[in-house]
Deep mutational scan, measured.
Amino acid sequence: ETFPLDVLVNTAAEDLPRGVDPSRKENFLSDEDFKAVFGMTRSAFANLPLWKQQNLKKEKGLF
């Protein structure tokens, strides 16, 4: 299941849709939104070091 970017960005855990893991908001973006937000594919993002993934998520309001 995916959700629009505005539902996930800068949203407190208690305000997220049911079933969304607040530590993994990026997994609930569509592939198109994911690429638009991070400028890379999911596989490229997954290959980044964890610290870099976290920094990007913070920068984009998805942490």
Rank of each mutant, 00 (worst) to 15 (best):
E1M: 15
E1K: 14
E1P: 14
T2D: 03
T2K: 11
F3K: 04
L5R: 05
L5W: 08
L5N: 03
L5Y: 15
D6H: 15
D6G: 09
D6V: 09
D6Q: 10
D6W: 15
V7L: 15
V7W: 13
V7Y: 15
L8A: 04
L8C: 06
V9S: 07
V9P: 03
V9Y: 05
N10P: 05
N10L: 07
N10E: 07
N10I: 07
T11Q: 08
T11F: 08
T11P: 06
A12F: 08
A12V: 09
A12P: 14
A12T: 08
A13V: 14
A13E: 14
A13L: 13
E14P: 11
E14G: 11
E14Q: 13
E14N: 10
D15T: 07
D15A: 10
L16Y: 14
L16T: 06
P17M: 04
P17Y: 02
R18N: 14
G19N: 10
V20R: 04
V20N: 05
V20C: 07
D21I: 06
D21Q: 06
D21W: 04
D21F: 04
P22C: 08
P22Y: 02
P22H: 07
P22S: 08
S23K: 13
S23V: 09
R24W: 08
R24S: 09
K25Q: 06
K25S: 05
K25E: 04
K25V: 15
E26T: 03
E26F: 05
N27P: 03
N27I: 10
N27E: 14
N27F: 10
N27Q: 15
L29V: 03
L29F: 03
L29A: 01
L29T: 01
L29C: 04
S30W: 01
S30C: 06
S30E: 02
D31Y: 03
E32G: 11
E32A: 12
E32L: 10
E32D: 13
D33S: 05
D33R: 01
F34E: 00
F34V: 01
F34M: 01
K35Y: 15
K35M: 15
A36T: 12
A36N: 11
V37S: 03
F38M: 07
G39N: 14
M40L: 06
M40N: 00
M40D: 00
M40Q: 01
M40G: 00
T41G: 08
T41H: 07
R42L: 04
R42Y: 05
R42T: 01
S43W: 13
S43N: 11
F45K: 00
F45M: 01
F45I: 00
A46P: 00
A46L: 12
A46Q: 12
A46I: 10
A46Y: 14
A46K: 12
A46D: 09
N47A: 14
N47H: 12
L48S: 01
P49N: 02
P49C: 05
L50A: 12
K52Q: 14
K52S: 09
K52E: 14
K52R: 13
K52N: 08
Q53V: 01
Q53C: 01
Q54N: 14
Q54Y: 14
Q54E: 13
Q54H: 11
N55H: 13
N55V: 13
N55Y: 13
N55F: 12
L56W: 02
L56Y: 05
L56Q: 01
K57W: 07
K57F: 06
K57C: 08
K58T: 08
K58C: 14
K58N: 07
K58F: 10
E59V: 08
E59P: 01
E59Q: 11
E59Y: 06
E59I: 11
K60S: 07
K60L: 10
K60C: 08
K60V: 13
G61C: 09
G61P: 02
G61S: 03
L62D: 05
F63T: 13
F63D: 15
F63N: 13
F63P: 05
